[in-house]
Design a protein around this nucleic acid. Structure first.
Lengths: 353, 353
DNA sequence: TTGTAAGCGTTATCAA
DNA sequence: TTGATAACGCTTACAA
């Protein structure tokens, strides 16, 4: 193994100069610098990570913990985090908690001592535990808020607002909502947006179909209720539920969008793989991931001076970064509602595509 | 920060004894051991990773590089790798090459010096580059073979064999194949399986629809050719292509499976989100990932003695681990083929569901 | 600008 | 079984 001493010797300088020539080129005279650089190249010098870490206390790695890597939602965040981290010279240590609180707790404590900071995606941990963790290593929350911890969240309420507004514009006046689990942090917020939007509109009626599992099967169950609800449109907690509804409605001979319009949330890739393609509230997962990295690096950054008004990233403990969402209109809401009459009739659409 | 010296001092022993008490408990007297353990606990001692790494040369991390984390195929592998690595006390450094050769090359060299070994999933690098990398750090290939490097691959050919056999049993005698890119390592093997199966059966005819992009859109293009081919069944390179075919056929009024049966490959989650649900060759991604970790750890393992006939994992440089695949029959091949007549007719199915 | 030398926290070697 | 002590390879005061 080639060490810095070897390079220094070959270049005829001290190890300190060699170190500086590589890390802080401006601090060393041009001729010596080039000698060092060449020696390093010739010898195939690769700095020893562990030694550097031991000396500096920084690993150049950040940790990302998600509930499920195989979930397209979190996979997209992971991809974005990786890209942004890499662009800043960081490697990514990834943790999959398998949707389990205990696993999550173990994972974060293990990873905390391996990286320079943690990005926690939809963590289930308590606020207190999160704060305790933050004392060990800088933490950034994604899709979750806790006390004053830096966080980046989706503007959940605004998404439902947009969806309702879209449906209202199409003429829908009776809209069903197929919500997620009652204890879901995001569903509460999506419901709030729904309530506000409806209140603002005045002439819209909402049928709460009740909570459903956040999966395709949840949607299957919801589908039957939609058909019986007399609603001309349904807004689902997320795309998986919406896809389940779509499938169930079609199996029952209810045409989408002619008889019932369907709107999802998240815009997972599958939304475009079905017909009709799903209108949905697109969540910019890549922005979520990028913002999280920026927030973390802002805390971790060496130039951690007071920096008055300098950095563009949120100050630690500042207000959460709220990422905007946007409705993507596709075929599943392509037409105006049929006249409000029998719930499950399959009459001709008022407006054909 | 609490160091090992602090613990040693508190326990009234030397740092060396403290180190041993924690790492190799049997090497130290019971009384001292318990004193050290208690002191460590009381003081909240957390060993410094960097120092340990510097001293031992081992990081306790392994690196995983995939072409695309957001691809459900690779996401599943990543999840499995993570789970298996964690069970063995390893953390996972993840790299996403974004399907780009240059990025992949940079990534692997960067990661190689951070972990104890690399798992490369469907790498695009040349055999020579892979060998060169292996000289730096232990490498295990997934879904790729190169020289004598340890690898774990899918039994691609067998999957197509199973699919053809299934279709043949249903009565199909004219089968279309919508292949992937010509330079695809796996498509070549899937084609081989197809050829062999057809040769063995004797009375089956294959229509090669040509290469398609491995995406949904590739399937859309293939769909039209299927309809025109006069085939009663189509086998696609992968599920995405199959889904595209499904969508296109349905848009054209061709009923699946009554008019044409469709079979995919991979069994991505979306395969069950469409109707009819997709019959497909299921690839056990979790086994792929687990096997890869086992293979890597077998190389990395400290007890690297000759171990005659001991370990259950493949010897480095041994034959690639070949993971079996299995056909999952779903609705998209649920009926016997309609009588061979006009290519795109939408006549009634011979057998209803 | 450069060099010397003192760490960084562990593990491993070698006597005792 | 234990304890000094020397690595491990790099960074960084501090001096020159």
């Amino acid at each position: 193994m080639v060490t810095l001493r070897d390079v220094a010797r070959a270049a005829g300088v001290s190890p300190a100069t060699a170190s500086r020539a590589l890390a802080a080129p401006d601090m060393v005279a041009a001729d010596r610098r080039s000698r060092v650089l060449r020696a390093a190249r010739d010898l195939g010098y690769r700095p020893n990570r562990a030694a550097r870490e031991l000396s500096t206390g920084r690993t150049g790695m950040l940790c990302l913990v998600v509930p499920d890597l195989a979930n397209p939602f979190f996979a997209a965040v992971a991809k974005a985090v990786h890209a942004r981290a890499r662009a800043s010279g960081y490697a990514v240590l990834v943790g999959d908690s398998d949707e389990d609180l205990r696993t999550e707790a173990e994972l974060v404590t293990q990873l905390a001592e391996r990286g320079d900071g943690l990005i926690l995606c939809s963590p289930r941990m308590s606020d207190a535990d999160l704060r305790a963790l933050d004392a060990r290593a800088p933490v950034v929350l994604v899709n979750r808020e806790a006390d004053g911890l830096p966080a980046v969240v989706i503007d959940n309420a605004d998404g439902t607002r947009q969806a309702v507004s879209h449906l209202h514009a199409l003429g829908h006046r009776r809209i069903a909502y197929a919500g997620g689990p009652a204890d879901s942090w995001s569903d509460v917020r999506r419901r709030n947006g729904l309530r506000e939007a409806v209140a603002a509109l005045g002439n819209v009626e909402v049928v709460d179909l009740g909570p459903f599992s956040r999966a395709f099967t949840g949607g299957t169950a919801a589908g039957d209720l939609v058909a019986a609800s007399g609603a001309t449109a349904v807004l689902a907690h997320n795309d998986l539920v919406a896809l389940g509804i779509l499938d169930r409605l079609q199996a029952r001979g209810v045409h989408v969008p002619q008889d019932v319009s369907v709107v999802g949330y998240d815009d997972i890739p599958s939304a475009t793989l079905v017909s009709p393609a799903l209108t949905t509230v697109a969540v910019p997962l890549d922005r979520l991931g990028r913002a999280a990295v920026d927030l973390l690096l802002a805390q971790t950054a060496p130039g951690d001076s007071t920096d008055p008004g300098g950095g563009r990233a949120e100050a630690p403990g500042g207000a959460p970064v709220r990422v905007p969402v946007s409705l993507v209109v596709r075929a599943s809401t392509d037409v105006a509602p049929a006249p409000r009459s029998a719930p499950t009739q399959t009459g001709p659409a008022r407006t054909a595509r």
